[in-house]
Design a protein around this nucleic acid. Structure first.
Length: 706
DNA sequence: TCCACGGGCATTTTT
DNA sequence: TGCCCGTGGA
C-alpha cells in the first residue's frame, strides 16, 4: 500500500474503489488530478491491470499530456499503451478503425471551426443567401447544438422561417461533409455514438478491451459525450468520473452540469466521494471563492476548507481606464519578480481575449517577457493552413474544399475561368474536383495551358502520395512545402513578413518530426487529426520564462502563486451576453470562482472606471462579484510606483523637441517633430535602431520621463 | 492580376 | 483601435 500512502483518506478511497461506478466531486485545488493519476497507477501497479485495458478522457490535450507524464513517473513507460486523450481525439481514433460501416471512408478529414465556416459560406452562396444576414458562425452554433442533442436535419422541428432555413443549411452541410469525406468536431462524437448504437458487436469489442474508464472534468461533458461514456462503460460498469459542478464553465458549448445529477440516477449504486480539502490557496482566497459561489442556486453544495493560514488580504484596484489597469498589473508583477518570484509563477487573467493587448504592451514596456495563451494560433496562420490543405488533399482526395484553397496558390494559371470549366465538368459527372485534374484533357473549354497546369498538379499529388507511402512524415511535409511552391514563393520574396511565413512553415516541418518521434507513428491521417484537434495550449511556447496571459477559461486546471484578475466590471465580467438568463449569470459566477481559485498566495482584483470596448468608451460599475466578497477579506491597493521611481506622465499630448519618451510598443525614443495641438497632436519620434514613426498622441499612450 | 486604400465592423469563452 | 473585406486604380 506504499503507493497510496501519500493521499488523504478520501483521495485514497477514490483510488481503491476500482470496481463499479464512482463519482468523485472534487473541489478546486483538492488534488483531483493527483487522485486520478494515482488511481491509474494503482490499477496498473497494485492490481496488475494491463494499461491497454484503461481508457481515460481528459478535457484538453494539455491535461492528457500532463496526466500521461505523471502516471509514467509512477509506473514507467508501460502507460504508453493506455488510451488517454480528449473525447474528440479518442473518438477520432475509434472512427479511423470503424467508420466504414457508417458510410464514410477511413481516410476522413477533420474540419475545424474555420473549415466549417468556409463550407457554410459556400452553401449560403449556393442558396443565394447573404452571409451578413445569415452569419455562418451563428448557423454553425445551431447545427452544433442540434448534433449535441442527436437531432439530424430530418428531426428538425422548428418550422419558423428562420428555423427552416437553418434546417436546410444543416441538411446541405451534412450532405457536403459526407461528399467531402470530412467530419466536423461534433460529428466525431455524434458518429461514434451512432456507430455503437447501430453496431453492438463493435461496441462489444471495445467493452472487452476497456475494463476501466475514467473521465476528468466530468462537469464539462455535453450530452453526446455523456452518451459515449455511458456506452463504453455499459459492459463492466467500472467507471470513475471526476468533476466539480462549481467549475462548469462550458455551458455555451453544450456542457450540462445536469450530467452529474444524471449520473447518480443512471448509476444509483455509485459511490460518491467528496474531496473538499483545498491544498492550493490561502484561507482568505478560499473564503472569497466560497462566498461568491454560494450565491448560485444550481449547485450540489460543497464547501472547500484549508489548513492554511488566512494569508494576505485580497487587493482591489480601481483603475481610471484599461491602460492604467494594465500598467498597474505590470508593476505589481514586476515588483513581485524583484522580490524573487519567477515571472512564470504570475498570471494575468481576463474574461475575453481582446483584453490581452493592453497587458502585452504594458509588460513589454516594463521589460517583462510574457507567454500569451490563445489569440492567433499557429495552425490558424494562412501559410500553415495552406500547407495543411495540401496535405489534406494528399490524404483525402475527396476534400474539394482543401483543394480549392490551394488549387491556384501559389499561382499556376488555374484562375477563375479555368476553375469554372473544371467545376462545370465536375458537376456534370458528380465527381470530386481532384478527379477532374486528372481528366483535364476532357474538360470542355479548358485552355491548353490550363490543361497542362491541372495535369501537373495532379501528377504532383500522385508523387506526394508515393512519398507519403515511404513512411517519413517530416520528409513528406518538407517535400510538399518545397514542391508545391510554397517555400520557394516566400524565399523569393525576402520581406520580413515572408521571413515569418518561412519560419512558420519550417515550424510545421519540425512539428511533423516531433510528432513522428513522440507519437511513434508517421501516419499522415494521425498527424492531420492531431493538427486539427490540438488545443492552443500545446502550441504556446514552453521554452521562455514569462508572465502568463490568458483567459479564465484557459486557466482552468492551473495554479499560480500570484494572480491578477482584471476587467471586473459589469458587462465585461460578468459578460453582457450572459445577462439574458439566470443560468448565464450563474455560469459567469462559476467562471469567477475558477479564476479566484487559481491563486495560491496572492490575488489582485482590478476594474476600470472607463474602458474602450469595440472602439467606444464605456463606463461600467464594478462587477457584482466584487460586492459578493465579504469586505473584511479585501483591501484597496495602493498605487504601485514604477520601478525606477521616475515621475511619469502617461498619455501626454504636449511635447518638446528632443525630449525622451517611451512608446508602449517601440520603447524609448526622442521627439523630433510635433504637429497640431491638444487632442490632435501628432508627434514624430526617432527610435534608436527602430526608425522614425509618427503617432497621434491621444492614441499612442506615450510616457514622459521627467 | 496585384496592391493600396478606406469603410465598416467587431469581441465570449474552445474541442 | 485594428482587422477584414470589397472596391477601384495601375
Amino acid at each position: 500500500m506504499h503507493l497510496l500512502s501519500q493521499l488523504n483518506p478520501q483521495q485514497r478511497r477514490a483510488c481503491e474503489i476500482t470496481e463499479g461506478p464512482v463519482l468523485v466531486l472534487a473541489g478546486a485545488g483538492s488534488g483531483k488530478t493527483r487522485t486520478l493519476t494515482y488511481r491509474i497507477a494503482y490499477l496498473i501497479k497494485e492490481l496488475g491491470v494491463a494499461p491497454e485495458a484503461i481508457l481515460a478522457f481528459t478535457f484538453t490535450n494539455k491535461a492528457a499530456q500532463e496526466m500521461r507524464d505523471r502516471v509514467e513517473a509512477l509506473v514507467g513507460a508501460a502507460v504508453r499503451s493506455m488510451w488517454l486523450g480528449t473525447f474528440h481525439a479518442v473518438a477520432a481514433r475509434i472512427l479511423r478503425q470503424e467508420i466504414a460501416v457508417m458510410g464514410y471512408g477511413p481516410r476522413f478529414g477533420i474540419y475545424d471551426a474555420e473549415d466549417a465556416r468556409n463550407l457554410v459560406r459556400e452553401i449560403l452562396r449556393e442558396m443565394g443567401l447573404d452571409d451578413k444576414k445569415w452569419p455562418p458562425a451563428q448557423l454553425l452554433s445551431h447545427i452544433s447544438r442540434a448534433k449535441n442533442a442527436f437531432l439530424t436535419p430530418d428531426d428538425w422541428s422548428d418550422a419558423s422561417f428562420f428555423g427552416r432555413r437553418v434546417q436546410e443549411v444543416y441538411a446541405r452541410y451534412q450532405e457536403r461533409l459526407r461528399a467531402l469525406n470530412a467530419l466536423d468536431f461534433d460529428d466525431l462524437i455524434f458518429l461514434t455514438v451512432q456507430l455503437f448504437d447501430r453496431f453492438p458487436e463493435v461496441l462489444a469489442r471495445y467493452h472487452r478491451r476497456f475494463q476501466y474508464v475514467l473521465v476528468d472534468e466530468y462537469q464539462d461533458t455535453n450530452l453526446a459525450q455523456y452518451r459515449l461514456i455511458r456506452q463504453l462503460a455499459a459492459g463492466h460498469r467500472n467507471l470513475c468520473v471526476v468533476g466539480d459542478d462549481d467549475q462548469s464553465i462550458y455551458g455555451w458549448r453544450g456542457a450540462d452540469v445536469r450530467n452529474i445529477l444524471e449520473f447518480q440516477r443512471e448509476f444509483p449504486d455509485a459511490t460518491v466521494i467528496r474531496l473538499e480539502e483545498n491544498y492550493r490557496s490561502t484561507g482568505n482566497i478560499l473564503a472569497a471563492a466560497n462566498a461568491v459561489v454560494r450565491n448560485n442556486r444550481e449547485r450540489l453544495g460543497k464547501e472547500l476548507w484549508t489548513r492554511k493560514e488566512p494569508g494576505e488580504r485580497i487587493s482591489v484596484y480601481e483603475a481610471p481606464d484599461e491602460n492604467a489597469e494594465a500598467w498597474q498589473a505590470a508593476q505589481i508583477v514586476g515588483l513581485a519578480v524583484q522580490q524573487g518570484i519567477k515571472p512564470s509563477e504570475c498570471a494575468i487573467l481576463y474574461r475575453t481575449n481582446a483584453q490581452s493587448r493592453a497587458f502585452e504592451m504594458a509588460l513589454s514596456r516594463v521589460g517583462l517577457g510574457y507567454r500569451l495563451v490563445g489569440g492567433k494560433r499557429f495552425y490558424e496562420r494562412k501559410e500553415v493552413r495552406d500547407l495543411v490543405a495540401y496535405l489534406k488533399v494528399v490524404y483525402n482526395p475527396l476534400d474539394d474544399l482543401a483543394l480549392l484553397r490551394i488549387i491556384n496558390f501559389p499561382r499556376r494559371g488555374l484562375g477563375e475561368v479555368a476553375l469554372e470549366r473544371l467545376a462545370a465538368y465536375q458537376r456534370e459527372r458528380g465527381i470530386a474536383l481532384y478527379q477532374t485534374l486528372g481528366e483535364a484533357e476532357a474538360v470542355a473549354g479548358l485552355s491548353p495551358a490550363g490543361q497542362r497546369a491541372a495535369q501537373e498538379l495532379c501528377e504532383l499529388f500522385g508523387h506526394w502520395r508515393a512519398v507519403a507511402a515511404e513512411g517519413d512524415l517530416a520528409q513528406l511535409v518538407r517535400t510538399v512545402a518545397e514542391e508545391s511552391g510554397l517555400l520557394p514563393l516566400y524565399q523569393r520574396e525576402g520581406t520580413s513578413e515572408a521571413e515569418d511565413r518561412l519560419e512558420n512553415l519550417g515550424e510545421l516541418i519540425s512539428e511533423a518530426r516531433r510528432f513522428q518521434i513522440e507519437q511513434g507513428t508517421a501516419d499522415l491521417g494521425d498527424f492531420l487529426s492531431w493538427v486539427a484537434l490540438v488545443s492552443e495550449w500545446d502550441q504556446t511556447d514552453q521554452r521562455s520564462d514569462g508572465v502568463w496571459l490568458m483567459t479564465v477559461h484557459s486557466a482552468k486546471g492551473l495554479e499560480f502563486p500570484l494572480v491578477v484578475l482584471a476587467g471586473l466590471e459589469e458587462g465585461i465580467f460578468p459578460h453582457a451576453r450572459a445577462f439574458d438568463e439566470p443560468s448565464g449569470l450563474e455560469e459567469e459566477r462559476r467562471l469567477f470562482y475558477v479564476a479566484v481559485t487559481r491563486a495560491c498566495r496572492r490575488l489582485v482584483l482590478m476594474h476600470a472606471k472607463t474602458r474602450i470596448v469595440q472602439g467606444r468608451a464605456q463606463s461600467n460599475p464594478p462587477s457584482r462579484f466584487l460586492t459578493e466578497i465579504p469586505e473584511e477579506l479585501l483591501e484597496p491597493l495602493d498605487f504601485v510606483r514604477p520601478r525606477e521611481g521616475a515621475k511619469v506622465e502617461r498619455g501626454a499630448t504636449c511635447f518638446t523637441l528632443g525630449e525622451t519618451v517611451t512608446h508602449p510598443r517601440f520603447g524609448r525614443g526622442t521627439v523630433v517633430a510635433t504637429r497640431g495641438e491638444g487632442e490632435d497632436t501628432e508627434v514624430t519620434i526617432a527610435f534608436p535602431g527602430g526608425g522614425v514613426r509618427s503617432f497621434l498622441a491621444k492614441y499612442a499612450q506615450l510616457i514622459k520621463e521627467a
